[in-house]
Design a protein around this nucleic acid. Structure first.
Length: 561
RNA sequence: GGUCUAUUAGUCAAGGGGUUAAGACGCCACCCUCUCAAGGUGGAAUCACGGGUUCAAAUCCCGUAUAGACUACCA
């Protein structure tokens, strides 16, 4: 038996299969011409954040636009980062945005699809088979360097202003004889498995990126770690190459942070003689941090990075999706404008329209999209979704809504379901502030905003006159005519233009009058259409609230005196 | 330090040799209007800098600057 074989057997005693066996188990997919296979490959470290959601979404679209396959692979080779129920969490977040994988994990333990296991911790045997073959071919070797030694190498490199890394003459264990390696392993020394890189840093290679075009890199000459020491689980680089080859991924669409390791991945594909998939490196989602500089949106530090944040805010997921689409493909907004009634599935992604530069996450824009989205929903839809949201985040409001279903829907229908609907709700969480005054439960001790007319006696006259003689809700136009009539009678201008010309001739104008009525009924100076509000409130409540308002004024006065 | 990427208004961006340099969000003004939210009209605001190439450069080339990513037995 040759020495290399002995070493390989010692390192991987349990490997029974060969790469060729796996090639048979996972044959090339028979998909129609041009169909793309993509994947989303997160670590189960908790919620999906905006950046990865965007990337998942692009992967999904890129596959679906061609009737291809989109699958979910869980990258849990770093066991200490894994979080309980992390997979279900990811699945739920994706599902929430209608991203349903065709293959991959479906819960913490199970998966569907013929190219599994789809969780890396269960692919150990595969990685070892591939790695063993590398050892046999002289492309991988055990490295016994301790962390301190690596640190030392690094310090020397920094001191001499040399390139940092484990390569060339710095790669001590590379030149270890096979016998020595065997001896060390037998004596129980800890080791990692490293790539014996055949690359030359002074040689250039040209790699193609679907988003950025051709990029020139130096060849990789780093002896990167393939298998980690303690559990012999693969590193990202190695797992990526093995998995994406065996799962027959055609398009690797991932964040820009990976672009620097592209030469490593290319080299591994070369060594194995595997077909290189197409790569697309997406611009990162950024934010401005406290120091005023841009940085990658961070899962840990930025609350707005989490999908959960928008859920709490009550931003409809459809709006988040629309926003993601607008930052994902630059021509999406235009397409939406031209195809307002088409299904989003009809929009096709284009690599050329994916931005290469990082995008600042723009919450204002999201709010605007959300506002427009909500304005197009029916009152019933608003009601249903609001109740669902409120049950989770504002239970009291939820029960009020449920006890007054028909009434609530009528409220939401004010200036809705018309050609140019009202646009004031930006999120479910914002709705209560727009409608609370319609419910007596929230109108027990209203805080009245101040009006232009502040004299109590005058207010009393206005409200009493209005209630006694001019409260006619039979028709919006006649109602307003009545209001104008009263305005003139009380010495105010019913015509605002007229008033502006000669303000001295009047005590005020019609908006001052309606202002008083509005505040009396709602406590607010700004509300939707007064006529609609009064119709819903009804005569009895109007009277009640007028009285309440007038009383509140006297209370205030006596307090001041 | 090294490698790579990016750079068009406050933000997202179109445009890839000749354009009055699109559009969206935001901002401002006016119009409409019973108040808002809208809607309408208009406006301010952009090609990072320096050199080339060219009759002509935001666009091509070379530098520089700035920002970001990577440079882990994290992904």
């Amino acid at each position: 038996m040759n020495k290399l074989q002995e070493l390989a057997d010692l390192m991987f005693p349990n490997v029974k299969k060969t790469i060729a066996d796996y090639e048979k188990i996972y044959p090339e997919r028979s998909l129609k011409e041009g169909a793309r296979v993509t994947r989303f490959a997160p670590s189960p470290t908790g919620f999906v954040h905006m950046g990865s959601l965007l990337s998942a979404f692009e992967d999904y679209k890129i596959a679906k636009d061609t009737d291809g396959i989109f699958y979910l692979r869980i990258e849990n080779t770093d066991q200490k980062r894994s979080v309980e129920n992390g997979i279900v969490g990811i699945l739920n977040d994706l599902k929430n945005f209608d991203i349903i994988p065709d293959e991959g994990m479906i819960d913490e333990e199970h998966s569907v699809g013929a190219y599994g296991p789809y969780i890396q911790s269960e692919r150990q045997e595969i990685y070892h088979t591939f790695c063993k073959e590398l050892v046999l071919k002289g492309f991988a070797y055990p490295c016994f360097c301790k962390p301190e030694e690596l640190e030392e190498i690094r310090e020397i490199q920094e001191l001499n202003k040399e390139r940092i890394g484990y390569y060339g003459s710095f790669a001590k264990c590379r030149s270890l004889s096979i016998d020595e390696a065997i001896k060390k392993i037998k004596s129980g020394e800890e080791y990692v498995v490293r790539l014996k890189s055949p690359g030359n840093f002074n040689k250039k290679i040209m790699l193609h990126d679907e988003v950025r075009g051709d990029i020139e890199f130096p060849e990789n000459d780093l002896d990167i770690v393939l298998l980690k020491s303690t559990d012999k689980l693969p590193t990202y680089h190695f797992a990526h190459v093995v998995d994406d080859h065996l799962m027959r991924t055609t398009h690797v669409c991932r964040g820009e942070e990976w672009i620097a390791s592209f030469p490593i991945h290319y080299q591994l594909f070369q060594i194995f003689n595997f077909k290189l998939p197409a790569y697309a490196h997406l611009g990162l989602v950024m934010k401005i941090d406290e120091n005023g500089t841009r940085r990658k949106l961070s899962k840990r530090k930025d609350k707005e990075a989490s999908v959960e944040f928008y859920h709490k805010e009550g931003i409809p997921k459809e709006a988040v999706k629309l926003y993601l689409m607008t930052i994902a493909n630059s021509n999406f907004e235009e397409w939406l404008d031209n195809n307002p009634n088409s299904s989003l599935d009809e929009f096709k992604f284009d690599f050329k329209k994916i931005s290469a530069s990082g995008t600042l996450f723009d919450v204002e824009k999201l709010f605007n999209i959300s506002k427009n989205y909500l304005s197009r929903q029916s009152a019933r839809t608003i009601y249903d979704n609001l109740v669902i949201w409120a049950e989770e985040f504002e239970p009291e409001f939820a029960s009020i809504l449920k006890n007054n279903q028909d009434y609530a829907i009528k409220i939401f229908n004010i200036e809705r379901e018309v050609e140019k609907p009202r646009k004031d709700y930006v999120s479910y969480s914002s709705i209560k502030n727009f409608v609370f005054y319609m419910f007596d439960e929230y109108f027990e001790n209203p805080i009245y905003e101040s009006t232009k007319i502040s004299d109590k006696e005058e207010i009393k006259i206005i409200l009493n006159t209005y209630f006694a003689k001019y409260l006619d809700l039979s028709n919006k136009d006649t109602w307003f005519l009545k209001v104008k009539e009263m305005t003139d009678e009380l010495g105010y201008a019913s015509n605002i233009k007229e008033y502006k010309k000669n303000p001295k001739n009047y005590k005020g104008n019609v908006s001052d009058i309606t202002g008083v009525i509005r505040v009396a009924l709602t406590s607010k100076t700004n509300t939707p259409d007064l006529y609609e509000i009064m119709k819903l409130l009804g005569k009895e409540k109007i009277q009640e609230r007028f009285t309440k308002y007038i009383n509140s004024l006297s209370v205030k006065k006596s307090k001041i005196n």
